[in-house]
Design a protein around this nucleic acid. Structure first.
Lengths: 130, 130, 130, 130
DNA sequence: GTGGTCTAGACCACG
DNA sequence: GTGGTCTAGACCACA
């Protein structure tokens, strides 16, 4: 997991998942956590590709998906920017979380865990970390 | 309805996940929840493939993964059986849950949710259901 | 505008617009007009690419967009199929038309045409054809 | 609000269309609707670029297209002027409208709408506005 | 400089 | 066989 700093981002990629998806997820995270300010420019396709040592087309795929998500806006000849609408970011964050949670609960229930079991396990996880 | 069913398995119209994985997950769930008794024989590859109207190769992949998990045993000339060691089932269940939970927590933290946030959201989900 | 027949489709491409967009539009049209039945398989990426003498990646782009639109469903290892939900097709058709109409009315009003003017011109167009 | 305005031109935050085209369309509209008098001088490239806070090259492209349309004339040492031939404006307006209408009808027919359908939808749009 | 489209050709996972 | 990801490298439109 070679980590690279590109602009304000610190990205690391592995090979167990499509590269472009990893970029998308890490960007989504950085935006949702507010590490990139609204309206801010993100690295150009070429810049990021060079920094991560991957093909520009791969970065393009990632950037297009972010735009479809409504998280970025691309301005021809200028670059790619985070949306300036806080609302879009918030909507995306909660929808995305909802989806992740439902998938998780489904898998756990499939294994026979009740919601109470789940709460307990998470609680234990939390205490382990401390 | 295009849904196919055989024994405890039910395949619907979900193509977002590989078919063989869907079979694996349903089997894993049924075993973990004790719906299939230890030592019980499961359908042959050909039987299941025919029953679900899918390619035998697909069933084959699923059965191989279950065997790798240590949940089934193949007895030459007799067929495939659920392991008769309760211990193996329990180990698998907790390891698998651990993995699911870690993946979940990772995704949620990526979106900027703390463990407390997560506990809250799950609690609310639970109350919604009731 | 070399027209090629591929499966049930008759597609023709020019170079004044991105190739993948032309494929998307022609497919959308064929689906909206009901020329391809719901649930039907469309040509494989390679088949269509070969038929149109273009690169498979270009066809892939088009097919991905159709899937994002909810008009197709892709089944790994099997192919790409028109959605079997009539509702999705209808929704897409009316949303798409709405968008086309708004864009049109905007342009015409920009040129100083009133809605009545527009109705008249279209009427005349219609009579010309007959 | 990031909106920039100069004279009759107003540039908003629309990046779905090239900037230079937006300028061209607004100019065309203003001329066709008679909001700019025939023979009138329009701002110099530099003035407009500065007023709209955009790159002079962008304005340049727009002005070139207007001249190709026959709507403006460049007089050496004096600047750019709207054509003083009413005829040219009228010709342009009807040709342009023709083109817009044909494109629109093509798209709608692609979606399976008949001319009558289209008339109806536009009628409904009109009534909605009132 | 920016994003966007396209090709040629490789390799992978799935059924 | 199917779709999907990735690379290398070309060329275009826009600012």
């Amino acid at each position: 997991m070679d980590e690279q700093e590109i602009g304000i981002l610190r990205l690391g990629l592995d090979f167990s998942q499509p590269l472009y998806e990893q970029i998308v997820e890490q960007m989504r995270g950085a935006i949702a956590r507010g590490e990139i300010a609204l309206g801010e420019k993100i690295p150009s396709v070429r810049e990021l590709a060079h920094g991560l040592k991957i093909n520009p087309n791969t970065v393009m795929s990632a950037y297009k998906e972010l735009e479809r998500d409504g998280l970025t806006e691309t301005r021809r000849g200028q670059g790619t920017f985070i949306t300036s609408a806080q609302e879009k970011v918030d909507d995306f964050r909660s929808e995305w979380a909802e989806q992740v949670i439902d998938e998780f609960l489904g898998k756990m229930e499939n294994l026979g865990y009740t919601v109470d079991d789940i709460q307990l396990v998470i609680q234990r996880k939390k205490e382990d970390k401390e």
